[in-house]
């Protein structure tokens, strides 16, 4: 067709536009159904009135948020005071998740660095080894962690056998047990992004620093760490965020004193005793905190200020 060539350009761009609409559809559907819809439901529910057997009454109410932040006495008629219970649970969760993140970083960074320094051919194998435990269900892994840590478990028996301790450490049901559980649950999320960053790191920079009289630790601190910082930030977020909302580890490894947000929210939706608007409100508050954290960590960084 002779005329085809002349109009080809615009025809093509029109088809292109159409194709783009269709090709983007799955992304929009996914985003809509899997992200926006549940969030909207949660947001709406958090502003509704609770139904005593679970569920909601379609009536606007701030009661859930009020219950989270304020204490108005047993009958709700006293002047409001700050309610510390839930803020305390949030605070503990942040602390637990933070400790788990630090632990993951301390173990995960050297692991990732080690893998990135292996010969190219070996690296895939090492990454595979790191991820193997994660083929097993999280519940099973957390339970086995409990078996590992309990007083009659291999850790205590082993330490006692070699005479390092004379009686069990009593780790289970403590904050430490929860932190170890969280650490174990999410370690690969720390290792993998850091590994990716270290692998891309230009080793000549370390040589240049050594050439300019920097000893090893200074090279790590001043050159390597700032260069792989995006990987570290990503790893920390990927461990911190799910740890914060986790309920398996605190439920299985912790006790009454290690109650975390995840468990609090879980309780509100479980069985008939729950309070859906309150659970939704707690979720929204958690989400807000996470969003603030993400925004803070996503700010472009201009080197460590000294």
């Amino acid at each position: 067709m002779a005329g085809g060539a002349a109009t080809g350009g615009s025809v093509q761009s029109e088809t292109y536009r159409e194709a783009r609409t269709w090709l983007l559809l799955p992304a929009w559907v996914t985003l809509g159904i899997l992200t926006l819809a549940p969030l909207t439901i949660m947001l709406v529910y958090s502003f509704l009135t609770k139904e005593f057997r679970g569920g909601v009454i379609w009536e606007f109410s701030l009661a859930a948020y009020d219950q989270f932040f304020f204490d108005r006495g047993l009958f709700g008629d006293e002047p409001p005071r700050i309610e510390w219970t839930y803020i305390g649970i949030f605070w503990r969760s942040i602390w637990q998740a933070g400790a788990a993140t630090v632990l993951s970083l301390l173990i995960g960074f050297p692991t990732a660095y080690f893998i990135a320094m292996r010969p190219q051919k070996e690296r895939a194998l090492w990454v595979f080894l790191v991820t193997i435990p994660y083929w097993v269900n999280l519940l099973i892994r957390t339970v086995s962690m409990k078996f590992l840590l309990r007083d009659e478990g291999p850790l205590n028996e082993g330490l006692m056998a070699i005479g390092l301790i004379s009686e069990p450490l009593g780790i289970v049901n403590t904050n430490l047990a929860v932190q170890l559980g969280l650490f174990y649950s999410y370690l690969p999320f720390m290792v993998l992004p850091i590994y990716a960053a270290v692998e891309r790191y230009n080793l000549a920079l370390s040589e240049a620093a050594a050439d300019l009289y920097a000893p090893r630790w200074t090279i790590l601190r001043r050159i390597v760490l700032p260069s792989v910082r995006p990987g570290i930030v990503a790893g920390c977020i990927l461990v911190f965020v799910p740890s914060l909302g986790s309920f398996l580890a605190p439920d299985l490894l912790g006790g009454a004193k290690t109650f975390m947000i995840g468990s609090l929210i879980e309780e509100q939706f479980k069985g008939n005793a729950g309070n859906w608007p309150f659970g939704a409100a707690a979720s929204m508050i958690l989400l807000t905190m996470v969003l603030i954290l993400l925004i803070l960590s996503a700010r472009p960084s201009r080197k460590g200020v000294r």
Binding site: N202, A204, L205, E207, A208, A209, D211, I223, P226, S227, K303
Partner: peptide, 11 residues
Amino acid sequence: TVFQNYALFPH
């Protein structure tokens, strides 16, 4: 040393 690819510290 002046390195072949300079190896300047990017940060």
